[in-house]
Design a binder for these strands. Structure first.
Lengths: 208, 208
DNA sequence: CGTCGGTTTGAATGTTATCAAACATGGTGG
DNA sequence: CCACCATGTTTGATAACATTCAAACCGACG
């Protein structure tokens, strides 16, 4: 879920947000890119009746692009204390025009994101709750270039996981209990530890 | 669902595909971009047990990028007779390096696609079958910059619509019948005509 | 110690999938 | 031209999965 990582001059206006503070509102005029200096954010879209879908998470180093639209296509909210450096749209635009490397880097990361989106379309459209959660846990627990297993970020609430996977918190909670009973994971308060990645991988795409 | 539209020299190797012919296979080594000259294609991902999710459709002028991966992230199949011009990955890469405009154009369309993907995540994750189909029909029936209503492309089978929306053909068929009964659409063989776009728009995001 | 937000668990409901059959449609060859 | 077949679509009955509603539980914090 990593967003574009650019060699942007970190000299833009710095701003800080507190936990749960919303700093991008869907459909608001988009004229600023945000470069995450510290902390993390959840990006999401909502429907008029409150249903919410998390589009992705942004971490340190990621850039939340203003996109080629007049308005932001999603909302963003700090998951904890957070610092960003603001890059006005024209600045990044100018950087892209003058430095071919910068434009290529942006293109690369945009395409990287697209590939991830494809996988998520398949997940949301065609996989069962059980498969989605298994895939999510593995995605969170394994970092590229390391066989080590990390616990899932405790800053993620059940509601976050549910809104990311297109499920309800109850379903997520039930499935976590099932996984626990099957000794696939262990839980200590919010943090989740993966115990049996191989069996999780098997669940991920198998018709049970 | 429009893919990147680039001013690419159309002098690459031309290839023709017949209806249903598969010309990109997921996970196959990716070294070629395809520029659609005529016809159309469906792009999709599949699970080992045959479940399929359509990622998007490509029409005349679109470019199916090889992406920044070693392997294609999806499969592609001609929806009818089709002609493409093949652009080797290094050629486009070189074009991006030498012409900043080309790189910017690719970036722009990649981001455009991303914005579309966000909307589809929300749809697949959080909307009901009824809402998805209404949104799909409107998306197909209205072209930007025109109030005119087009019939839905008859080349799209019920299975295509279902695989795009993350539903089954039976559910799609049932809903189309319902919409027909409600006088929202009319059907003549495969083609679907929109009769009441306003009411469809209301269905799109309203909790019934 | 009591309250509050978040999590877990339970029972009932509902939406969509699955299975199965009838029904169109389009193409082919007699 | 029509009968026939293959393929795709519609409709129905049933079942499965996930949601909804509701209550108990737990931990953090004042």
């Amino acid at each position: 879920m990593s967003f574009s990582q650019l060699p942007i001059p970190t000299d833009g206006l710095k701003r800080s947000f507190s936990e749960r503070q919303k700093f991008i509102t869907e459909d608001a005029p988009a004229n600023m890119h945000f470069h995450v200096v510290s902390g993390g954010a959840r990006l999401f879209k909502s429907l008029p009746d409150g249903r919410r879908q998390i589009i992705g998470f942004a971490h340190r180093g990621d850039v939340l692009p203003a996109y080629p639209c007049i308005r932001y296509p999603y909302s963003a909210e700090a998951m904890r204390g957070m610092q960003v450096s603001c890059v006005p749209a024209p600045v990044l635009h100018h950087l892209h025009e003058t430095s071919p490397g910068a434009c290529a880097a942006s293109l690369h990361s945009a395409r990287q994101l697209l590939v991830g989106m494809h996988a998520r379309l398949l997940m949301l459209g065609r996989q069962t709750a059980r498969e989605r959660l298994a895939a999510f846990l593995l995605g969170q627990g394994t970092r590229m270039g390391s066989t080590e297993l990390w616990p899932v970020d405790p800053a993620l609430s059940r509601a976050d996981i549910a809104d990311f996977l297109g499920l309800t918190t109850e379903t997520v909670s039930r499935l976590l209990s099932t996984f626990h009973r099957e000794k696939l994971i262990s839980r200590e308060r919010r943090a989740i530890h993966i115990l049996d990645p191989d069996r999780l991988r098997a669940i991920m795409a198998m018709p049970e």
